[in-house]
Design a protein around this nucleic acid. Structure first.
Length: 223
DNA sequence: TGCCAGGCCGGGT
DNA sequence: ACCCGGCATGGC
């Protein structure tokens, strides 16, 4: 994937806080829509924890309109901000301080933050090696027969994490961040649900046998 | 034109 | 423990 895309410096977002906001807003939504909403907030000088939390929910929802589900996302974003401001003095470094599993559990306890959103924040804003499993990751792996199409989040995450940690040079934060970024690119360009372009996919040489599936049960190559 | 996008939650079996 | 509908705008 790197041979195809180069080393990606990826998560769009200029600050860790932007990354966290983006992680919530991009739930089941295209990133271009999220960019518009974030640009508007930034333009208005509202893109900081206390400023954003000071907005009434209905007003916040107005800014989030382009991202879809704006009422839901306003509520979820405010739940995150309530924790960040109220428990961690609006300081992301405090929120992310500590063991990965502990921080992750704290994030998951916030209503509206599920496993993918939590892992995105941990990996791209918090400096934690917590692998993100998204729709692309699942589709790419299941189409290669490396996991079942309905694999559980935690199971695929463990598979990915094991593959990285077993090769020491790749077990770095930078590599983990890049790995997920590469999968998203491959997913967008070659592994769409309707019209996959498998013949041109950079992962093509890995078919039919992947490097990850050797010790594992083979799965039928189907979604 | 209809279908989909880097999910998550709550209520029902 | 699963299964499913709801949430909503923008883009191809």
């Amino acid at each position: 994937m790197r041979a195809h895309y180069g080393h990606l410096r990826w998560w769009p977002g200029e600050t860790p806080f932007e990354v966290c906001v983006g992680a919530i807003l991009t739930q089941n939504t295209t990133w271009t829509s999220v960019e518009r909403a974030i640009a508007g907030l930034k333009q208005a000088g509202l893109l900081d924890p206390r400023g954003l939390y000071a907005l009434p929910e209905a007003e916040l929802a107005g800014w989030l309109r382009p991202t879809g589900y704006f009422n839901v996302k306003a509520r979820r974003l405010r739940a995150f901000l309530r924790t960040l401001v109220g428990e961690f003095d609006a300081d992301l470094e405090r929120l992310f301080a500590g063991a990965t599993a502990v921080v992750r559990a704290r994030l998951l306890a916030i209503p509206g933050i599920g496993p993918e959103t939590a892992d995105s924040m941990l990996l791209y804003a918090g400096g934690h090696g917590s692998f993100v499993i998204d729709a692309y990751t699942k589709r790419i792996f299941s189409r290669h027969g490396w996991c079942a199409p309905d694999v559980a989040y935690a199971e695929l995450q463990q598979l990915c994490a094991r593959a990285l940690s077993e090769m020491p040079p790749t077990a770095t934060l930078d590599y983990w961040q890049d790995y997920h970024a590469q999968l998203v690119m491959v997913g967008k360009d070659f592994c769409r649900p309707r019209s996959p372009r498998c013949a041109e996919c950079p992962l093509r040489p890995l078919l039919p046998e992947g490097p990850l599936n050797a010790p594992l049960a083979r799965h039928p190559r189907r979604e």
